[in-house]
Design a protein around this nucleic acid. Sequence first.
DNA 1: CCTCGATAAAGGTACTACTTATTAGGCCGC
DNA 2: GCGGCCTAATAAGTAGTACCTTTATCGAGG
Lengths: 231, 231
Amino acid sequence: MGMHGDVLNELGRRIAAGDPRPGTVLKLAQLEQEHSVSRTVIREAIRVLENIGMVAARRRVGITVQPRELWDALDPYLIQWSLHGPLRHQQLESLMELRVAVEPMAASLAAERATVTQRAELLRLAEQLNDLGQQGLGQTEEYLGVDVAFHALLLTSSGNPLLAAMATPVAEELAGRTKLGLHPTVPAPGTLEQHLVLARAIASGDRKEAEAHSHAHLLGVWGEIAQGKAP
Amino acid sequence: MGMHGDVLNELGRRIAAGDPRPGTVLKLAQLEQEHSVSRTVIREAIRVLENIGMVAARRRVGITVQPRELWDALDPYLIQWSLHGPLRHQQLESLMELRVAVEPMAASLAAERATVTQRAELLRLAEQLNDLGQQGLGQTEEYLGVDVAFHALLLTSSGNPLLAAMATPVAEELAGRTKLGLHPTVPAPGTLEQHLVLARAIASGDRKEAEAHSHAHLLGVWGEIAQGKAP
DNA sequence: CCTCGATAAAGGTACTACTTATTAGGCCGC
DNA sequence: GCGGCCTAATAAGTAGTACCTTTATCGAGG
């Protein structure tokens, strides 16, 4: 990534963090100086932010930071920036709610449409997760990697590009939570085998079972999080 | 919107339609000539496409059209382009599946978190929909507008920015389907009052009811579509 | 056959000049 | 004094050019 990417990330993170608050107007020339880069670079960064809806450029006015409601909250960049800012907990919660909504549907569709290799791979990953969990390695880098791979494959196996596109956000949600140490040290009973029964349901093509197990799994995780939040 | 936006839409639509197929390499200079605009304009358009994942720019190589799996299918621009291309039916189907996953969750959350004004407005819109439907105006512009407003408000009332961000895609799904005349001329019995019972459930704060009604409603619509597709 | 280095091709950055839309403010007429 | 119009100033948009940086490719030499 070049200077452009740096500026983009810098600006994106700051605005996502709320530093230049909505309503603030920035000037192209001003940014040009603050970041010591050419106009070209700034303009391209602004263009991207504009497409996310975070800013709006108007002639004779300047670049206005837009209210949050207008931002495209699903944009991968914005999600990442949000997870590195002061609102990361809320962002994680929102992501979790999204997962609860989306993954069961993906599981259901995957049971119908997944290829044989995808089904096999899902089973393999689930078994690996189960093994690692049994050994108490539920908070290691390795477990996280496999977990991410499993859920990503689940979403892509749905055959729905819109669901598949959520693999990245979901991965960041999982990574974000583990890296903040928000996972319970001792998982609730039954949580461990859930990946396995889910994978088996998909492999056997049982839509309802797949959906139900996915849903149960996510509700379990959700509950654990909510628990760790209160005290 | 200026020349930049034109070029962006032009390129986006074409690539989404599959004309420059994935793997194709474009040259900045070449595009510059084909569209008769300055390098600045092309570069900014490419930048945006790159952020959506549709192209990747590499030095000494050029601008490569990326495989579809790498595109951010949730990007509002891409969704719009897809709905204007040859794949619009698949896109509509994907969007519908997404709605089935997401809206019940939004309804459930809205029952808990919606403000009083939001609840009232939802009720008002639902009543309006009901009235229009009773009069057999289910395929008019007016009905579409209210329908879009209702579902958009439902999503934003969830209090979850990620769900709220789906208002635009959902709106386009509804508009796209009506404009293609894919709605059944005679709705299935019970469909008409569904908005109303849903709005009432949300207004009264009954999460489970809200979720159930939303789910039932969407399954109904989904079924109607599937029916119209087969023959 | 492999390695290293020269070369050229393409995007990335900088800078400058000019264009265009838009707002604010002043001027004039009523 | 008030309202509408005209003008000027401002800031983004576009164009064009020169130069930098990366990197694929190919050839010379080991």
